[in-house]
Simulated scan of single mutants.
Amino acid sequence: MTAMDIHEILKYLPHRYPFILVDRVVELEKGKHIHAYKNVSINEPYFSGHFPHYPVMPGVLIVEALAQAAAILTIRSEGTSLDSNKVYYFVGIDAVRFKKPVIAGDQLVLKVVISRQIRGIWKYAAVAEVDGQIVTEAQLMCTARAI
């Protein structure tokens, strides 16, 4: 089991402000699963336009947060880092469901499990929760390419 703070996360993800969507990893088992957090603040840049009268985190950013958690899991499982000669790409999303809006003040709990890895394609079952309730679920895929 591995926990990671934001400084450690930034060693593995190429994303930076305003697009880093994982604040903390509380559990990571290489080759298995990750459990991470995204703290949703009213200061998020997207809230000014989505929507000014009722700020809601865009669903595509919830999926992106899940994808970033999956990327951390994959990179750590492979034993690589940002210094490697690989770039990890998000290549597929299936069965996405948005069940409840995510608003300022929520803590988004990101849970991603590797469901399969074959011929350079990683598949994941991903769930985002707030207060123990599922807000988003999806099946994700990524691949790595040498640079």
Score class of each variant (00 low, 15 high):
residue 88 Y to W: 13
residue 72 I to F: 05
residue 79 G to H: 05
residue 20 I to W: 00
residue 91 V to R: 05
residue 99 K to T: 10
residue 96 V to W: 00
residue 108 L to H: 10
residue 135 V to S: 02
residue 142 C to M: 15
residue 105 G to W: 10
residue 120 G to T: 09
residue 43 N to G: 11
residue 11 K to Q: 14
residue 119 R to H: 11
residue 33 H to R: 15
residue 39 N to C: 13
residue 113 V to M: 13
residue 141 M to Q: 15
residue 74 T to R: 07
residue 111 K to H: 11
residue 58 P to F: 07
residue 64 E to A: 08
residue 7 H to E: 12
residue 107 Q to P: 09
residue 111 K to A: 10
residue 130 V to C: 07
residue 73 L to G: 09
residue 103 I to P: 02
residue 14 P to G: 04
residue 10 L to C: 06
residue 20 I to K: 00
residue 73 L to R: 09
residue 55 P to M: 01
residue 22 V to F: 01
residue 74 T to W: 03
residue 46 Y to H: 11
residue 36 A to Y: 07
residue 57 M to T: 06
residue 82 L to P: 00
residue 55 P to L: 03
residue 59 G to S: 03
residue 78 E to H: 15
residue 5 D to F: 03
residue 127 V to G: 04
residue 74 T to A: 15
residue 63 V to L: 12
residue 104 A to I: 13
residue 42 I to M: 14
residue 135 V to P: 01
residue 110 L to P: 11
residue 81 S to V: 01
residue 55 P to Q: 02
residue 11 K to W: 03
residue 27 E to A: 12
residue 35 H to W: 11
residue 11 K to H: 10
residue 18 P to N: 09
residue 61 L to G: 04
residue 46 Y to L: 08
residue 23 D to N: 00
residue 52 P to K: 02
residue 12 Y to S: 06
residue 68 Q to F: 02
residue 141 M to V: 06
residue 19 F to R: 05
residue 143 T to H: 06
residue 65 A to N: 05
residue 89 Y to I: 12
residue 1 M to A: 07
residue 44 E to C: 11
residue 134 I to Y: 02
residue 29 E to S: 06
residue 18 P to R: 09
residue 108 L to S: 13
residue 141 M to S: 14
residue 90 F to R: 06
residue 37 Y to C: 09
residue 146 A to P: 04
residue 125 A to S: 12
residue 43 N to F: 13
residue 4 M to I: 04
residue 4 M to K: 01
residue 76 R to L: 12
residue 8 E to S: 05
residue 28 L to G: 01
residue 83 D to M: 05
residue 137 E to P: 05
residue 103 I to T: 15
residue 80 T to C: 03
residue 45 P to L: 08
residue 53 H to G: 08
residue 103 I to V: 15
residue 4 M to G: 01
residue 141 M to N: 06
residue 15 H to Y: 09
residue 39 N to E: 14
residue 121 I to E: 10
residue 13 L to I: 04
residue 36 A to P: 08
residue 34 I to F: 13
residue 92 G to K: 08
residue 30 K to M: 02
residue 134 I to N: 12
residue 8 E to C: 03
residue 130 V to P: 02
residue 45 P to F: 15
residue 135 V to L: 04
residue 36 A to R: 08
residue 30 K to D: 03
residue 41 S to K: 12
residue 41 S to C: 14
residue 88 Y to E: 04
residue 78 E to N: 15
residue 2 T to G: 01
residue 125 A to K: 15
